[in-house]
Design a protein around this nucleic acid. Structure first.
Length: 121
DNA sequence: GGTATGACTGTAT
DNA sequence: GATACAGCCATAC
């Protein structure tokens, strides 16, 4: 498959199992596309692990060079915008990539939605 | 080891 | 159709 190791971190290798998978998938998200936590979690095998996906990102947020701005909730809402450098950084970044965001919600969500199980698989 | 919290999701009211 | 509650998995205290 694709390059599994993109850049090890100083974190222990125990919990990195799930985390690394999340980061990898997020990094594989093409520009102008976004995905949901549930999609990533489901791709990892834990559909109910959506929280862990978000938590994993929140734990590292931009520290791992991961485009977290491409990851939104199931409604296409920029739930993480508040955790970014600035509450508008996420939206600005998405729009910069060609994603239309309005009222902190991704427009054309169905079209902008990127499913790792379909696109990446 | 148990309790509380969390960038979520789905079902129920 | 919108709001409320419960479930799931992992980390932190």
């Amino acid at each position: 498959m694709n390059a599994k190791k993109v850049g090890k971190v100083q974190e222990p290798n125990s919990k990195n199992d799930f985390f690394d998978n999340v980061y990898e998938v997020v990094r594989l998200i093409p520009p102008g596309r976004v995905t949901s936590y549930g999609a990533i979690a489901a791709y990892l095998g834990s559909k109910r692990g959506a929280r862990m996906v978000g938590w994993a990102m929140g734990n590292s947020h931009t520290q791992y060079n991961v485009p977290a701005h491409r990851v939104v909730n199931r409604n296409g809402l920029l739930s993480a915008k508040n955790l970014f450098e600035t509450p508008t950084a996420m939206q600005e970044r998405l729009e910069s990539e060609g994603v239309t965001v309005k009222d902190d919600v991704v427009q054309n969500w169905q079209q902008t939605f990127w499913d790792p199980e379909k696109e990446l698989l």
